[in-house]
């Protein structure tokens, strides 16, 4: 019982670690269309990429300070909102990151395929 609880928390930590690297990619891609913070968060969440506000807003600020996003305060529905969109440099970086992402995916697929074969070889040798 304790083991399965430990495993669950371990998996949760590893899952968060895995997702952390994808967040920048997801945020940059989502901001190809201009959005403000709350709709961005909802949009990501609707697509299965749940991100809490404590992570999202500092990330947006960091990406803006790195010149990958631009933002402006504007009134919408009688409320002041800060709208974000990807910058020209952000688009270039996103393109490179997507290529990197695809390369990692392909490599991982190859590795998993090889390990899968290895496992099946071991199983058949054992039987």
């Amino acid at each position: 019982m304790a083991n399965s609880t430990e495993n669950l928390s371990l998996i949760e930590n590893l899952r968060l670690e895995l997702r952390r690297g994808c967040l920048v990619l997801a945020v940059l891609a989502e901001l190809r269309d201009e959005q403000y913070g709350y709709t961005l968060r909802k949009g990501l969440s609707d697509r299965g990429m749940v991100i809490d506000e404590g992570t999202l807003y500092p990330l947006l600020r960091r990406l803006e300070s790195q010149g990958l996003l631009v933002s402006e305060w504007r009134e919408e529905e009688k409320r002041n909102k800060r709208f974000y969109r990807i910058s020209r440099n952000g688009r270039i970086v996103l393109k490179q990151l997507l290529f990197e992402w695809q390369t990692i995916g392909l490599s991982l697929e190859e590795i998993l395929k090889e390990s899968g074969n290895g496992t099946s070889r071991q199983i058949s040798a054992g039987s």
Partner: peptide, 13 residues
């Protein structure tokens, strides 16, 4: 700046 954005997010929620 941060408080305004945070307030907007909470109000939207």
């Amino acid at each position: 700046d941060i408080a305004a954005e945070l307030a907007e997010d909470i109000r939207s929620q």
